[in-house]
Amino acid sequence: MIYFYNVTKEYGRGSGVRDLNFTVHKGEFVCIVGASGAGKSTILKLIYMAEAPSAGKVVVDNYDSSMLDPSQIPYLRRRVGMVFQDFQLLRDRNVYENVALALRVMHINRREIKKRVLHALNSVGIGHRAQYYPQELSGGEQQRVSIARAIIKDPIVLLADEPTGNLDPEVAREILALLQRIHEKGTAVVMATHNYNLIKNTPFRRIRVEDGTLVTQ
């Protein structure tokens, strides 16, 4: 489902990733582990095609980075859910509107949007906060909203870039448990984290990145 073929991404001064080869299968949970600056975020950016490889190619579903027209990127992103350490929520819109945005860009009708938003919010345990604004919520709650926005479009994969980076350990475990539940329902998850302790007891495949290269997978 996600294929990296000899992928190199250079940013200059030796940063970036080099010669990556790996696959993420349908419904799999993969943790990308490594220190800050090791290249974890770059790998995720290559998957949602915010970056193009300097060499090699990335294939996600039917989208091939070596042949992709930039106008196709929005359609790829509708198949990929994304969660970030800093939540990336719009502060001038309430929780409902933030989550609905992911469907509005897909031109889905209002009734369907309402049904799916409420369902998504309930499934991440934040249904009672629909009318709140992000700044009125705790970090854990904001991350739940961002997860709801990511899963509402039934993505083939959920990409989580340090999703627990801004959260205290207990809330971090809750978020990880939520991602596990989403995975159990059949969605593939690729999570980048520098917090090995958080995932050491999970059964998921780990890809270790050091200085831009894969050490183990």
Binding site: S71, L90, V105, M106
Partner: peptide, 16 residues
Amino acid sequence: REVIHIMRLVGATNRF
């Protein structure tokens, strides 16, 4: 710019 950035992340086309 944050709105533009987030809209692009969730798959909005340029026209949208």
